[in-house]
């Protein structure tokens, strides 16, 4: 009961902040709503028994990425209002059709009604960090190393893009 209440409160907050992120006029407001959204998602991870991801969410997203965004917002002059123009190549009808398709799929799901999946034998241990670490370093060692390589390439790429002249 308490779990369900927590889920619905957090889901409402996440959806509300998400809507504010994409509708905010000012970029700074958008980024601040993004922080609130990330923190709510981190709380949801805690209720989903993923404390390691909750910590990662707060540290990487709310701590790192948002600071990056704020730096760029400060570097870039956003005062100039965007030129008002309507692009005739925007495919409005296609967008409406795709939204209708998604809505139809959702309607079909609700019409059929969901089947509660059978309970699976629990292998999710309370030692969340240990379990993730074992999976990362034993079964997923090569993807893990590739991820570190991706971060290195992204770092070099960002430096080359942002530096005026090398």
């Amino acid at each position: 009961m308490a779990e369900a209440a927590a889920f619905y409160i957090l889901a409402t907050l996440i959806l509300g902040f998400g809507a504010l992120v994409i509708t905010a006029k000012s970029t700074v407001h958008s980024v601040l709503f993004l922080v609130a959204d990330f923190l709510c998602v981190a709380a949801l991870y805690v209720t989903l028994q993923a404390p390691f991801l909750a910590v990662i969410q707060v540290m990487v997203y709310a701590g790192g990425i948002v600071v990056l965004y704020l730096f760029v917002v400060m570097l870039v002059n956003l005062k100039r209002p965007p030129e008002a123009h309507s692009d005739p190549r925007r495919l409005g009808r296609l967008g409406v059709a795709m939204a209708a398709a998604v809505l139809a799929q959702l309607g079909a799901i609700f019409a059929v009604g969901w089947v509660k999946p059978a309970a699976v034998e629990g292998t999710l241990s309370p030692q969340n960090v240990e379990q993730i670490g074992r999976a990362l370093y034993a079964d997923y060692l090569i993807p893990f190393e590739l991820a570190s390589f991706l971060l290195l390439v992204a770092m070099i790429g960002a430096i080359i893009l942002a530096k005026r002249e090398l």
Partner: peptide
Amino acid sequence: QNVIGQVFAVFIVVVAAAEAA
């Protein structure tokens, strides 16, 4: 009850950080 989903989520966080940079 499988930890692989969380492992994959960690990789998505990595990709998101790289993409943001």
